[in-house]
Design a protein around this nucleic acid. Structure first.
Lengths: 111, 111
DNA sequence: AGAACATTCAACCAAACGGTTGACAGTCCG
DNA sequence: CGGACTGTCAACCGTTTGGTTGAATGTTCT
């Protein structure tokens, strides 16, 4: 499925908006893992974790590769970078704005 | 409501996971606005926009102040910075990892 | 007090979420 | 072939989301 930029950001931020999924990403930063190994630390069924991974995969935050009888799930750091770029841009922009204008008031637009 | 760090990130990323809300934040980077003025560009009812603002407010991405008969909504850049810090940390960490190890395989943990 | 404006609340709705259970499918190994 | 693993799928369930409409609540102005 081809996604617009907005949809891509939607799915990335949605992927990040759950602490279990963030924990999975954190776990994966130590190296690629099988779905089963990813699931072990959580008090969730394998199916639930499998769904979480699918959400991360839909956001392209993670990719799989079959490895014999199991699958390795690995991080896709590039996608995180996209989100980070969006955030960094606005964070910087806003901070600069607020520093110089100190929350100046809107002038009503009919003037 | 006091939120744990995880819940805070949940609500921040949830706030960002909708393109209308991201657009609102973008609009607000030009300065504080009333709810009505925020709502104008969108093909949504005022109530719908009001709800979006409430989501952003719950995430502390935005704050209101009564200003006579209306309310000014302004950005809260500090909160964005929190999310950015999370993202920047992992982005950097992952990228470094992947650069040096080039997706090395997990060793099965019973070894 | 009453009108006009700005915004929220309450009720409702369809769709998506996050989870469970149980059946199913792919791959390896004896 | 028959197990044993690994993982997904389908159906279901309760909750949350994102939206609508219409009534209600300030606030200001005359």
């Amino acid at each position: 499925m081809v996604k617009s930029n907005a949809q891509r950001l939607d799915s990335i931020f949605h992927g990040l908006a759950d602490s279990t999924r963030r924990a999975i990403l954190r776990d994966l930063s130590a190296g690629a893992k099988s779905v089963g190994n990813i699931a072990k630390p959580y008090a969730l069924t394998l199916a639930a974790v499998s769904k979480h991974i699918k959400v991360l995969e839909a956001a392209d935050l993670v990719a799989r590769q079959r490895r014999g009888s199991f699958q390795l799930v690995r991080l896709n750091a590039g996608t995180l970078q996209q989100a980070d770029q969006w955030l960094a841009y606005y964070t910087q922009f806003w901070t600069a704005r607020l520093d110089s204008f100190e929350t100046y008031l809107e002038r009503d637009e009919h003037e």
